[in-house]
Nucleic acid binder design. Structure first.
Lengths: 340, 340
DNA sequence: ATGAAAGCGCTAACAG
DNA sequence: CTGTTAGCGCTTTCAT
């Protein structure tokens, strides 16, 4: 085993003090060019790598960011994580990932772990249970330590911190409007992500679009289901109600409903049009391909890190908390009619 | 800001030494029951949390595992990460995640980061570029430090460490055999994950199944493409060749080909049957639903952590390296004929 | 049963 | 420009 070389050893070999070596390596002002070069050369030669743990202890800074996401199989979050890890890496930060599985308790545990790991900042998208129960003391606990937080996607007004989301209201509004413009009159809102802030905002956007419609359209109808009962609930619903458009609040509800209604004999988009949030990599392989709202999740992750790092570097209360909006766009495919 | 309480402060409040507090909290033998209780009570009262950084420095152990995966949008890896983080958390280990994006250089950088973060162990699924170029010095560098490694899914014989995979050969063999049994005669092997160990093994399994066939079947045909050119290459291929079965080496190739061949007018499963590796959550929503090989990726992640932790706890060279095989199974859906 | 002291590897006053 | 010293928070011998 190749033993790790420390500052002390470097110092001995170079016949200087530990302090000098440390300063030289950190490009301190008060070290001569000459010795800097000498030290750096030797450091490279002996394959010196600084011990981050020791640095952390001394500097009270761990160069690590905590990340908590509700789940990772949803491609939205998978891509967000990709953006996050990439941007963090480029800034020499490590990322500690924790998946809450939509559970409040799990989120609390992660916070505790992160807290005694001395993370420098936290990125979190809230679990549905957390949003439903409106329990945020664990988040406040982080803020008590003056550790900056960036909430992304699933946010709440009850926490004062930087935030980044899409414009859920507007995106849903636009998508609904799009369906109406194509001639749909009876659009239903379908979701498997009840109790999340994004779902609530999307519901409002959808409702407002119906309300603003100049032509007469059906009432607002919300169908909130789970992955498990989606099929049975939607079927029941279709038995009673006239439906010619579905707005899926998440990728799963869109893909699953697209599948189901066709199995039930409806033509898509002939009789029913479907639009879904989240433009996952498989949406283009459904039959027909799915019209979807692209959320640019990777970009959101990247921006979230940037905001967090700037907060870390400039101090906790440097300036007003910001809420950044990432643009979305509607990718038109074949699950919606092409003309009214 | 609520200041963090340290051992020193606890000691002062309790009128004992720092050493005593530390030992009491760690349930050391040579502390009286009485003081243990007293100390623990006070610790809880003052909300004491140990500083892991300091512990790490002292114990030369960071309680963190490094994880490197080739990508995260592939549901196989997303689920594996889920299994990993969950199992690690239950054992009080943190997970540092890095995505190599299939690039060797990125893998190297991650290794360096991990190395000076003093990870206690590494979980890695190799990037395709790494496997293609057979460059493993960065991995050896980890082993030089006697940090245990578990290779999962994408492995190589050139690294002596614990491994966990599915039986790629057998799974492909069985899937191919399944197609033949259903009457397919001209099965093509389609992959977008060329240059990976898993792809090579699956190719061999497929080839062997054709070879072992008692009835006369077409020759082995491998079609290795990228996400980008899959469509054009497969189309070209179908123009010249007779095909009544497709074995997709990865989810993407299966889903994309299922989609394409139907667009080209073939009936599935009437004229062409399709099987894919990785039983992602959307495969059941393709039309027709996709027969797939379930890889139990979450379980694989969990087991990988267990193996790694046992190696960490029992020492680097405790016993022979093991190669664990996770069972797969074929989920029969509608993209393959139901009888011959 | 408890405590004093050393030290993990590093940084940063401060002194020279 | 360089070195001495103290100390980050913790664990662990070794005395007592």
């Amino acid at each position: 085993m190749e033993k790790k070389v420390t500052l002390k050893e470097l110092a001995k070999v170079l016949n200087v003090s530990v302090a000098t070596v440390s300063k030289a390596l950190n490009d301190s002002y008060d070290i001569s060019e000459e010795t800097k070069i000498r030290v750096k050369k030797k450091a490279k030669e002996l394959n010196y790598v600084p011990n981050i743990i020791a640095q952390s202890l001394k500097l009270k800074k761990s160069f690590s960011l905590g990340v908590i996401i509700p789940n990772i199989t949803d491609e939205f979050f998978a891509r967000a994580v990709h953006g996050i890890t990439k941007e963090a890496k480029e800034n020499k930060y490590k990322t500690l990932i924790s998946i809450s599985n939509e559970e409040l308790q799990s989120e609390r545990e992660s916070v505790d772990t992160f807290l005694n790991s001395n993370i420098d900042g936290l990125l979190i998208s809230l679990a549905s249970e957390t949003q439903m129960k409106k329990q945020y003391e664990h988040i406040k606990k982080i803020q008590d330590q003056e550790i900056p937080i960036v909430l992304f996607d699933r946010v709440t007004d009850e926490i004062n911190c930087d935030k980044i989301t899409i414009d859920d209201f507007k995106s849903a509004y636009d998508a609904t409007y799009f369906l109406l413009r194509k001639g749909c009159k009876n659009v239903v809102f379908l979701s498997t992500i009840s109790n999340t802030s994004v779902c609530e905002l999307r519901k409002k956007g959808y409702a407002q679009a119906l309300k603003d419609s100049k032509i007469k359209v059906g009432a607002t109808r919300f169908l909130e289901v789970t992955h498990e009962n989606l099929e049975i609930e939607l079927k029941k619903f279709l038995d009673h109600e006239e439906v010619d458009g579905i707005l899926g609040a998440d990728e799963h509800s869109a893909v699953a409903s697209l599948h189901l209604v066709q199995n039930l004999g409806y033509k898509v988009p002939g009789q029913i049009s479907v639009i879904g949030f989240t433009n996952g990599s498989l949406t283009k392989f459904t039959v027909p391909s799915l019209t979807a709202i692209s959320q640019h999740s990777e970009l959101m992750g990247k921006n979230a890190v940037q905001i967090l790092l700037s907060r870390i570097q400039n101090g906790y209360l440097d300036k007003e908390m910001q809420h950044k909006i990432v643009q979305t766009n509607l990718i038109q495919r074949k699950s919606t009619r092409s003309k009214s």
